[in-house]
């Protein structure tokens, strides 16, 4: 009971601190708006994402097409909206995969310790030593490229840092008195892990999550650039941008609009992550 109260007041404090950070709050609003748009896309998109109008071709932003049309005459607004669904989904799902693996793995390694920890962390080292962007390229080449595999592949790579952070956190928490007290009171390991360790590590987890999402979205765009992304006619921000780069002088709006959308999202996620770090990290509360 006492814990919950303490926890809630901690989060409340954090929220108050976050509110002071105008940029982080702006980012939060922006991201929420974007998420809502992405969810509502099938109902609000003005056109079909694959319907071409070859006669029209690439046309600059106008009343009929707010964001213009691409070289095959497809409505760019619709494609950006559908793209945000894919890109955000890739970001969220891959990060969730990374989160699950990373937290569990790190917590177990840190908590059990000893030989098990040694072996588990060696495995992390192995995966760390793989040149990882390149490793994903190999993976997509080998396993083909369904979106699901893409999620899994990216998630499978991104969990490493998470595992390290959690392990470190658990190791340092283990030394602290309230855990030792809990052990003395006869709580099982699993109870301690669930009730004490993971809740206390929540700060770094949240921060790291907001910082993983942008790097995953960025990674998806690299794969698109290399031609290893999603299958047309679907669109993601990465694929829209990589097509846009090719014609940035002729049809600048095809790069600027998806580019701006991506950049704003990444800016927001990063600022929100920084803001959360400032808010959740008690050390900065001294100010």
């Amino acid at each position: 009971m006492q814990e919950i109260e303490q926890g809630s007041s901690l989060t409340h404090d954090a929220y108050l601190r976050l509110k002071k950070n105008k940029l982080a709050m702006l980012s939060l609003y922006l991201l929420s708006a974007l998420l809502i748009l992405a969810v509502l896309t099938p109902w609000i998109a003005p056109y079909s994402y694959e319907q071409q109008d070859l006669e029209l071709g690439a046309s600059p932003p106008a009343v009929a097409h707010w964001f213009g049309t691409d070289v095959l005459g497809r409505d760019q607004l619709t494609r950006v909206l559908y793209g945000s669904r894919i890109s955000l989904a890739v970001g969220l799902v891959a990060t969730f995969v990374a989160l699950c693996i990373g937290v569990l793995y790190g917590a177990i390694a840190g908590f059990v310790g000893g030989r098990v920890d040694q072996v588990m962390m060696r495995l992390v080292d192995v995966l760390y030593a793989l040149p990882f962007a390149i490793f994903i390229i190999l993976l997509t080449v080998v396993f083909g490229r369904s979106i699901l595999l893409l999620f899994l592949a990216i998630g499978a790579v991104e969990w490493l840092t998470m595992a390290r952070i959690i392990r470190g956190q658990v190791l340092s928490l283990k030394q602290q008195e309230f855990i030792q007290a809990a052990t003395a009171m006869g709580q099982t390991r699993w109870q301690i892990l669930r009730k004490h360790l993971i809740p206390n590590a929540i700060g770094p987890i949240v921060i790291y999550t907001t910082l993983t999402i942008p790097s995953v979205i960025l990674l998806e765009s690299f794969l698109s650039f290399l031609g290893l992304g999603i299958q047309p006619p679907q669109s993601s921000w990465g694929s829209l941008i990589s097509y846009g780069v090719e014609t940035m002088e002729e049809y600048p709006w095809l790069l600027v609009i998806p580019g701006l959308t991506l950049s704003l999202t990444l800016f927001s996620l990063n600022f929100l992550g920084d803001g959360l770090r400032d808010a959740l990290d008690p050390r900065t509360s001294k100010d």
Binding site: E50, Q51, Q52, L54, V71, L72, G227, P232, P233, Y243, E246
Partner: peptide, 13 residues
């Protein structure tokens, strides 16, 4: 390849 993609999209439609 960009050209192959565009031709395939047009034919799909």
């Amino acid at each position: 390849h960009d050209n192959h993609r565009k031709v395939a999209l047009a034919i799909q439609q």
